[in-house]
Amino acid sequence: MTAEIDCRGRVCPGPIIELAKALPGIAVGDVLAVVADDPAARHDVPAWCRMRGQEYVGEETADDGVPRYVVRRLS
């Protein structure tokens, strides 16, 4: 079961702030999904992972069609 944060309706940098707050709450090696309809999240989730040394796993789609960006905690 992947932990998930719901950022539907939030615009930049809201989803990234939520991601930064939530990631310490999961174990190293686990993954966290950010569900966000803000188009900027598609670029900013991978960029955040690069800047913070976390792994960007990839983009999926939630049941309602909203993009779901998956991140693995590395540290």
Binding site: C12, P13, I16, A40, R42, H43, D44, P46, A47, W48, R50, M51
Partner: peptide, 9 residues
Amino acid sequence: LAAMGALTH
């Protein structure tokens, strides 16, 4: 910024 993989916000 998107094409460079840079932070856009």
